[in-house]
Design a protein around this nucleic acid. Sequence first.
DNA 1: TAGATTGTTAATCGATTAACAATC
DNA 2: TAGATTGTTAATCGATTAACAATC
Lengths: 224, 224
Amino acid sequence: MKRLKVSNNVIRRLPRYLRKLDELTEQGVTRVSSQELGQQLGLTPSQIRQDFSCFGEFGQQGYGYHVPALRAQVAAILGMDRNYRAVLIGVGNIGHALIDNFCFSDWGVRLTAAFDVKPEVIGTTFNKVPVLSMEELPRYLDENEIDIAVLTVPKDAALPVTRILTGHGVEAIWNFTNVELTEPNSSVLVENIHFSDSLLSLSYYISERADEKAAKAARRERKG
Amino acid sequence: MKRLKVSNNVIRRLPRYLRKLDELTEQGVTRVSSQELGQQLGLTPSQIRQDFSCFGEFGQQGYGYHVPALRAQVAAILGMDRNYRAVLIGVGNIGHALIDNFCFSDWGVRLTAAFDVKPEVIGTTFNKVPVLSMEELPRYLDENEIDIAVLTVPKDAALPVTRILTGHGVEAIWNFTNVELTEPNSSVLVENIHFSDSLLSLSYYISERADEKAAKAARRERKG
DNA sequence: TAGATTGTTAATCGATTAACAATC
DNA sequence: TAGATTGTTAATCGATTAACAATC
């Protein structure tokens, strides 16, 4: 597979392609053109062809793309067939919700253990995932090759726990703590789920729309 | 406040500015230059000045920016002082976690009610938020001006519930369902939290790094 | 006043879109 | 074969960066 200087924008679109291709599969559609795909995703056909061409030639002239084949390619590009292993740190409300409801295996990731400091959860099992003591974390990381740490601890614990993780070979953190983890010196990959950023963007767009409406109304007022 | 043709990229950076300004406030820093701010956020000073200049003139030559003043401006731009009202639909694991742990009021949003179909949760209260029957939703929306619906229902319910929401005046949906809601005809604002998209991006970056390492190793192999 | 730093205009860079030859 | 649609090269558009006069 090609993989050269792919822009962030392209990468962020890949999961959307995957989602749409799964939807088409469900609908029994086996063939799709960049034209149709673009229509359904609100993108131009050009962009879609450009995006895929970063990684190879997945289509066929005069025909378009074979949905299952393209789906497999996108999945491979995203690393879904690499069986990454993950642990989850912090079995609070969000952590618990993720263990119970988020189907890691659907996305090619195996969640093998969770960690917490609370005695009442240590030793229990949620959705087949055992909850171990936080004290066992370093040893566990040393003995198992863990690629991803799902970080769902309280704010204060975010940085200390991150230091343990990076100190024991974890290369990627899926961060739910709303704390900016990316330290300049560190080379760990961080992907943030910032709930508040998302809500605030929405709040911005609502405000923008409201202001536009108000401005329009004001203009009408002045005129008539 | 100015508010003209602001690009999506700028808007997505605003919450990060807010977060950093709050951090500086906590540290007792009252003054910051675009230089320093850029350093801490990994952005160029130019970009930061450009971004703010979309909305007004918040700085002072030779001095920089007054942190509390700038913070207030950014908060206002994001609509945090507009007291938007929200309801949450679907008190499952994630919905419950949000009610209990996500501090809506910190971001200027009031969560006034939650809705569900399960008899065992209807009538209960979490974190002062009452859980009402799904059947009451239309009436509730008619009688209260709700700006935002937090959608945390199971996949299958996503579209039917969305129709109820848009049919009763909700203009914005904060979507946790991993279902593409944005219908072409609808004018409702949708902001998605796609956990899987985020995890897959991370998976991509891990794979990219692994491939680079492998390629480097292969080159070394060939040479010596 | 001299130094610092803004807001803004111009230059650069990168991403998206358009066009089209290649070909199924 | 004729029509359709790709992959890719060129053109356009927009976003980021650099430069600098204005000014605190």
